[in-house]
């Protein structure tokens, strides 16, 4: 575990740079977290993904799968891959302050 200062707040992160505690996350951190994954700017659609992931995590206690983002979140898979290229589940989870998704799906 390491500590990192993101958007003025010092939080615990994993060695991959995921927040250890999702409750540490603030909206201000998302753009900085996204930048570490090569996403320069968060647009409205990025936020739709992040907001859905946060809300679903709060409700279900687990990070939503890509299928769930499509079926329950109404976010088309093509769009997800455009917004968060090269690994949408992990990149979006990082920006949303959630842990690294562990599933195979």
């Amino acid at each position: 575990m390491a500590e990192l200062t993101i958007a003025g707040k010092t939080v615990e992160v994993t060695e991959d740079g995921f927040l250890v505690n999702p409750d540490d996350w603030t909206k201000e951190m998302a753009p900085e977290l996204a930048k570490t994954e090569g996403i320069e700017e968060l647009n409205e659609m990025h936020w739709k993904v992040i907001d859905f992931m946060r809300a679903d995590y709060k409700e279900k206690g687990q990070i939503p799968t890509i299928r769930r983002m499509k079926n329950a979140g109404g976010i088309p898979i093509k769009e997800l891959y455009n917004l968060f290229p090269q690994g949408p589940a992990k990149k979006a989870a990082k920006a949303a302050g959630l842990g690294k998704p562990q599933g195979c799906i």
Binding site: G87, A89, I105
Partner: peptide
């Protein structure tokens, strides 16, 4: 599963 998993990891 393997093809999908590959894409999920870029």
């Amino acid at each position: 599963i393997m093809a999908n998993g590959a894409r999920m990891d870029g």
